[in-house]
């Protein structure tokens, strides 16, 4: 996909850059912004950001590939990110993962054919007290069990729950 930096994006970039004494400090905030607009971080987006900030492309790519929140490929409308770390594990995350795979008919890292859901596992989301936890786009869903998961998937499919982001 082609990505072009809009005037609106440029204005946001200027605002963000003003927060730091060096323009390149705005790289990560701008990548978030870019991903919000494009749904992921496309190759052209990295080129454009590098140009905008006067950085070598390699620096942008290194940053994008280092941090887990930047998607290099398009993801579904709802990105289900199930925590698999210790507290969530003890609270039944493996069962929830198996349940999600069955319910959606996809494996980890895959997207449903209708483009609605991408399933991922992630490391600690920092909400262990309400384990097991899943992040969907910008929102956290906590103290989950299979019944709550089914209800959540249904709500998402019917637009009754709209987690922020994307």
């Amino acid at each position: 996909m082609s990505f072009k930096i809009t005037e609106e994006f440029r204005a946001k970039a200027d605002k963000l850059r003003a927060r730091y004494p060096r323009p390149d400090a705005a790289l990560i905030p701008l990548l978030h912004e870019l991903q919000r607009e494009a749904g992921y971080v496309p190759e052209e987006g990295m080129d454009e950001l590098a140009r905008l900030l006067g950085l070598p492309y390699s620096r942008v790519k290194a940053v994008v590939t280092f941090y887990t929140m930047f998607d290099r490929e398009p993801v579904g409308k709802y990105h289900l990110q199930l925590c698999r770390n210790i507290s969530c594990h003890m609270a039944g995350a493996p069962d929830l993962l198996a349940h999600l795979k069955r319910a959606l008919g996809i494996d980890e890292g895959e997207t449903t054919k209708d483009g609605l859901f991408t399933l991922s596992t992630v490391e600690c989301l920092g909400a262990c007290g309400s384990a097991p936890v899943m992040q969907v786009n910008d929102g956290y869903f906590e103290k989950l069990d299979t019944a709550k998961l089914d209800a959540l998937l249904d709500d998402l499919r019917h637009g009754r729950v709209v987690p922020g982001g994307r």
Partner: peptide, 18 residues
């Protein structure tokens, strides 16, 4: 943007600098 290591203070500074 998703990196546990950034909780280490100098990694955090690197990240803050982009």
């Amino acid at each position: 943007a998703g990196a546990y290591i950034c909780g280490e203070e100098t990694a955090l500074l690197e990240s803050l600098e982009g």
